[in-house]
Protein backbone atom coordinates (compact mmCIF):
# COMPACT_ATOMS: atom_id res chain seq x y z
CA UNK A 1 0.00 0.00 0.00
CA UNK A 2 1.06 3.59 -0.59
CA UNK A 3 0.76 6.09 2.23
CA UNK A 4 1.30 9.75 3.07
CA UNK A 5 2.93 10.39 6.44
CA UNK A 6 2.85 13.63 8.42
CA UNK A 7 5.61 13.19 10.95
CA UNK A 8 6.59 15.51 13.82
CA UNK A 9 10.23 16.52 13.46
CA UNK A 10 12.08 18.31 16.23
CA UNK A 11 15.87 18.62 16.47
CA UNK A 12 16.06 18.63 20.25
CA UNK A 13 14.23 19.77 23.37
CA UNK A 14 15.18 23.44 22.82
CA UNK A 15 14.30 23.73 19.14
CA UNK A 16 10.77 24.31 17.88
CA UNK A 17 9.36 21.36 15.95
CA UNK A 18 6.91 20.96 13.08
CA UNK A 19 5.30 18.43 10.74
CA UNK A 20 7.11 17.11 7.68
CA UNK A 21 5.29 15.23 4.95
CA UNK A 22 6.67 12.04 3.39
CA UNK A 23 5.30 9.35 1.16
CA UNK A 24 6.10 5.65 1.40
CA UNK A 25 5.22 3.05 -1.21
CA UNK A 26 4.70 -0.71 -1.43
CA UNK A 27 4.17 -1.25 2.28
CA UNK A 28 3.05 -4.80 3.06
CA UNK A 29 -0.17 -5.01 5.11
CA UNK A 30 1.60 -7.73 7.15
CA UNK A 31 4.31 -5.28 8.24
CA UNK A 32 4.15 -3.74 11.67
CA UNK A 33 3.79 0.02 12.03
CA UNK A 34 7.39 0.37 13.16
CA UNK A 35 8.59 -1.71 10.21
CA UNK A 36 6.81 0.86 8.04
CA UNK A 37 8.79 3.53 9.92
CA UNK A 38 11.97 1.52 9.20
CA UNK A 39 11.12 1.70 5.49
CA UNK A 40 10.67 5.47 5.79
CA UNK A 41 14.01 5.78 7.58
CA UNK A 42 15.83 3.65 5.01
CA UNK A 43 14.33 5.89 2.32
CA UNK A 44 15.43 9.06 4.15
CA UNK A 45 18.87 7.61 4.67
CA UNK A 46 19.24 6.73 0.97
CA UNK A 47 18.23 10.27 -0.01
CA UNK A 48 20.74 11.98 2.27
CA UNK A 49 18.08 12.83 4.81
CA UNK A 50 18.15 12.22 8.53
CA UNK A 51 16.05 9.30 9.81
CA UNK A 52 13.17 9.96 12.22
CA UNK A 53 14.08 9.23 15.84
CA UNK A 54 11.51 7.19 17.75
CA UNK A 55 11.70 5.02 20.85
CA UNK A 56 11.29 1.26 20.47
CA UNK A 57 13.05 -1.84 21.67
CA UNK A 58 11.39 -5.21 22.22
CA UNK A 59 8.86 -4.82 19.38
CA UNK A 60 6.61 -7.32 21.08
CA UNK A 61 4.50 -5.06 23.23
CA UNK A 62 6.07 -5.54 26.63
CA UNK A 63 9.08 -3.25 27.20
CA UNK A 64 6.97 -0.08 27.06
CA UNK A 65 9.61 1.82 25.13
CA UNK A 66 7.53 2.59 22.00
CA UNK A 67 5.08 5.45 22.11
CA UNK A 68 3.63 7.52 19.22
CA UNK A 69 0.36 9.34 18.83
CA UNK A 70 -1.04 8.01 15.54
CA UNK A 71 -3.98 9.80 13.94
CA UNK A 72 -4.85 11.31 17.28
CA UNK A 73 -4.72 8.10 19.30
CA UNK A 74 -2.02 6.80 21.63
CA UNK A 75 -0.55 3.62 20.07
CA UNK A 76 -2.81 4.07 17.04
CA UNK A 77 -6.19 2.84 15.91
CA UNK A 78 -6.13 -0.73 17.25
CA UNK A 79 -7.18 -1.56 20.83
CA UNK A 80 -5.19 -3.23 23.62
CA UNK A 81 -1.82 -3.13 21.91
CA UNK A 82 1.29 -0.99 21.69
CA UNK A 83 2.51 0.81 18.57
CA UNK A 84 5.01 -1.96 17.86
CA UNK A 85 2.19 -4.51 17.67
CA UNK A 86 0.06 -2.36 15.38
CA UNK A 87 0.01 -3.79 11.86
CA UNK A 88 -0.44 -1.98 8.59
CA UNK A 89 -3.52 -3.99 7.69
CA UNK A 90 -5.35 -1.58 10.01
CA UNK A 91 -4.78 1.15 7.36
CA UNK A 92 -5.95 1.52 3.78
CA UNK A 93 -4.00 2.20 0.61
CA UNK A 94 -3.82 5.96 0.07
CA UNK A 95 -4.32 6.87 3.75
CA UNK A 96 -2.65 9.89 5.32
CA UNK A 97 -1.22 9.07 8.75
CA UNK A 98 -0.34 11.75 11.30
CA UNK A 99 2.43 10.71 13.69
CA UNK A 100 3.24 12.74 16.80
CA UNK A 101 5.16 12.23 20.04
CA UNK A 102 3.47 11.96 23.44
CA UNK A 103 2.50 15.49 24.38
CA UNK A 104 2.50 16.26 28.09
CA UNK A 105 4.26 18.72 30.35
CA UNK A 106 5.77 15.81 32.29
CA UNK A 107 7.25 14.28 29.09
CA UNK A 108 9.48 16.81 27.26
CA UNK A 109 10.51 15.90 23.69
CA UNK A 110 14.12 14.73 23.31
CA UNK A 111 14.14 14.49 19.51
CA UNK A 112 11.44 13.97 16.86
CA UNK A 113 9.08 11.38 18.34
CA UNK A 114 11.19 10.54 21.38
CA UNK A 115 10.18 11.89 24.79
CA UNK A 116 11.75 11.93 28.25
CA UNK A 117 9.68 9.77 30.64
CA UNK A 118 12.10 9.91 33.56
CA UNK A 119 9.34 11.46 35.67
CA UNK A 120 7.84 7.96 35.90
CA UNK A 121 11.12 6.73 37.38
CA UNK A 122 11.07 9.43 40.02
CA UNK A 123 7.50 8.56 41.03
CA UNK A 124 8.31 4.87 41.45
CA UNK A 125 11.46 5.67 43.40
CA UNK A 126 9.25 7.31 46.03
CA UNK A 127 7.67 4.03 47.06
CA UNK A 128 6.81 1.67 44.23
CA UNK A 129 8.33 -1.26 46.09
CA UNK A 130 8.19 -3.48 49.15
CA UNK A 131 11.14 -2.60 51.38
CA UNK A 132 12.83 -5.98 51.57
CA UNK A 133 16.51 -6.72 51.12
CA UNK A 134 17.88 -9.74 49.29
CA UNK A 135 17.82 -12.83 51.53
CA UNK A 136 16.16 -13.59 54.81
CA UNK A 137 12.63 -13.72 53.43
CA UNK A 138 10.02 -16.37 54.25
CA UNK A 139 9.24 -19.35 52.02
CA UNK A 140 7.10 -18.41 49.02
CA UNK A 141 4.22 -20.57 50.18
CA UNK A 142 4.35 -19.11 53.70
CA UNK A 143 2.46 -16.10 52.30
CA UNK A 144 -0.77 -17.54 50.87
CA UNK A 145 -2.65 -15.12 48.65
CA UNK A 146 -6.19 -15.70 47.40
CA UNK A 147 -6.38 -16.34 43.68
CA UNK A 148 -8.73 -13.40 43.11
CA UNK A 149 -6.38 -10.94 44.82
CA UNK A 150 -3.36 -12.42 43.05
CA UNK A 151 -5.14 -12.13 39.71
CA UNK A 152 -6.20 -8.54 40.33
CA UNK A 153 -2.70 -7.62 41.48
CA UNK A 154 -1.41 -9.13 38.25
CA UNK A 155 -3.92 -7.08 36.22
CA UNK A 156 -2.44 -3.93 37.76
CA UNK A 157 1.16 -5.15 37.54
CA UNK A 158 0.71 -5.61 33.78
CA UNK A 159 1.39 -1.85 33.34
CA UNK A 160 4.36 -1.36 30.99
CA UNK A 161 5.07 2.26 31.92
CA UNK A 162 4.68 3.51 28.34
CA UNK A 163 2.88 6.74 29.27
CA UNK A 164 -0.12 6.37 26.91
CA UNK A 165 -2.40 7.20 29.85
CA UNK A 166 -0.67 10.54 30.43
CA UNK A 167 -0.52 11.36 26.72
CA UNK A 168 -4.23 10.64 26.33
CA UNK A 169 -5.50 12.44 29.43
CA UNK A 170 -6.70 16.01 28.79
CA UNK A 171 -5.14 16.95 32.13
CA UNK A 172 -1.93 14.94 31.50
CA UNK A 173 -2.61 13.08 34.71
CA UNK A 174 -0.45 10.10 35.71
CA UNK A 175 -3.12 8.65 37.97
CA UNK A 176 -3.56 5.39 36.05
CA UNK A 177 0.19 4.73 36.09
CA UNK A 178 0.53 5.55 39.80
CA UNK A 179 -2.60 3.63 40.75
CA UNK A 180 -1.43 0.49 38.94
CA UNK A 181 1.60 0.18 41.25
CA UNK A 182 -0.19 1.33 44.41
CA UNK A 183 -3.08 -1.03 43.75
CA UNK A 184 -0.89 -4.03 42.94
CA UNK A 185 0.97 -3.71 46.21
CA UNK A 186 -2.12 -2.78 48.27
CA UNK A 187 -3.79 -6.02 47.16
CA UNK A 188 -0.93 -8.17 48.45
CA UNK A 189 -0.10 -8.83 52.11
CA UNK A 190 3.59 -8.08 51.39
CA UNK A 191 2.70 -4.59 50.22
CA UNK A 192 0.06 -3.69 52.81
CA UNK A 193 2.59 -2.83 55.50
CA UNK A 194 3.81 0.26 53.67
CA UNK A 195 0.57 1.05 51.82
CA UNK A 196 -0.11 4.34 53.61
CA UNK A 197 3.32 5.84 53.17
CA UNK A 198 3.52 4.61 49.58
CA UNK A 199 0.26 6.18 48.42
CA UNK A 200 1.09 9.55 49.94
CA UNK A 201 4.65 9.70 48.70
CA UNK A 202 3.90 8.64 45.14
CA UNK A 203 0.94 11.02 44.75
CA UNK A 204 2.98 13.90 46.18
CA UNK A 205 5.78 13.23 43.70
CA UNK A 206 3.33 12.99 40.81
CA UNK A 207 1.90 16.40 41.72
CA UNK A 208 5.36 17.89 42.14
CA UNK A 209 6.45 16.75 38.65
CA UNK A 210 3.66 18.63 36.92
CA UNK A 211 1.16 15.91 36.09
CA UNK A 212 -2.45 17.07 36.21
CA UNK A 213 -5.43 15.93 38.24
CA UNK A 214 -7.76 13.07 37.41
CA UNK A 215 -11.22 14.18 36.35
CA UNK A 216 -12.56 10.67 35.79
CA UNK A 217 -13.09 10.79 32.04
CA UNK A 218 -11.70 7.27 31.71
CA UNK A 219 -9.81 8.10 28.51
CA UNK A 220 -6.63 6.57 29.96
CA UNK A 221 -8.25 3.19 30.43
CA UNK A 222 -9.43 3.14 26.81
CA UNK A 223 -5.94 3.78 25.46
CA UNK A 224 -3.99 1.62 27.91
CA UNK A 225 -2.34 -1.08 25.78
CA UNK A 226 -2.52 -3.50 28.70
CA UNK A 227 -6.12 -2.80 29.66
CA UNK A 228 -5.27 -1.50 33.15
CA UNK A 229 -8.65 -0.55 34.64
CA UNK A 230 -9.57 2.78 36.26
CA UNK A 231 -10.88 0.66 39.16
CA UNK A 232 -7.25 0.89 40.32
CA UNK A 233 -7.59 4.68 40.48
CA UNK A 234 -10.51 4.16 42.84
CA UNK A 235 -8.30 1.95 45.01
CA UNK A 236 -5.52 4.55 44.94
CA UNK A 237 -8.02 7.20 46.05
CA UNK A 238 -9.12 4.97 48.94
CA UNK A 239 -5.51 4.31 49.95
CA UNK A 240 -4.73 8.01 49.71
CA UNK A 241 -7.78 8.96 51.79
CA UNK A 242 -6.92 6.40 54.47
CA UNK A 243 -3.35 7.65 54.48
CA UNK A 244 -4.47 11.21 55.08
CA UNK A 245 -6.97 10.20 57.76
CA UNK A 246 -4.25 8.29 59.59
CA UNK A 247 -1.83 11.19 59.60
Amino acid sequence: MDLTLKVWRQKDAKTKGGFQQYSVKNISPDSSFLEMMDVLNEQLNNNNGEPVAFDHDCREGICGMCSLFINGRAHGPDDDITTCQLHMRKFKNGDTIVIEPWRAKGFPVIKDLMVDRSAFEKILQEGGYVSVNTGGVPDGNAIPIGKDDADEAMDAAACIGCGACVATCKNSSAMLFVSAKVSQLALLPQGKIEATRRAKAMVAKMDELGFGNCSNTGACEVECPKGVSIAHIARLNREFLVANLKS
Binding site: Y129, T134, N141
Partner: peptide, 22 residues
Protein backbone atom coordinates in the same frame (compact mmCIF):
# COMPACT_ATOMS: atom_id res chain seq x y z
CA UNK B 1 14.26 -21.94 45.60
CA UNK B 2 15.46 -18.78 47.33
CA UNK B 3 14.79 -16.81 44.13
CA UNK B 4 11.09 -17.64 44.29
CA UNK B 5 10.96 -16.64 47.97
CA UNK B 6 12.70 -13.35 47.18
CA UNK B 7 10.34 -12.51 44.33
CA UNK B 8 7.25 -13.32 46.39
CA UNK B 9 8.52 -11.05 49.18
CA UNK B 10 8.88 -8.22 46.64
CA UNK B 11 5.25 -8.58 45.61
CA UNK B 12 5.69 -10.43 42.32
CA UNK B 13 2.16 -11.66 41.50
CA UNK B 14 2.92 -15.28 40.61
CA UNK B 15 0.02 -17.49 39.52
CA UNK B 16 -1.74 -19.07 42.50
CA UNK B 17 -4.25 -21.84 42.93
CA UNK B 18 -7.55 -21.43 44.78
CA UNK B 19 -5.94 -22.39 48.09
CA UNK B 20 -3.68 -19.36 47.76
CA UNK B 21 -0.49 -21.30 47.10
CA UNK B 22 1.91 -20.98 44.18
Amino acid sequence: GAIIDQCVAQGVPFARDYGGLL
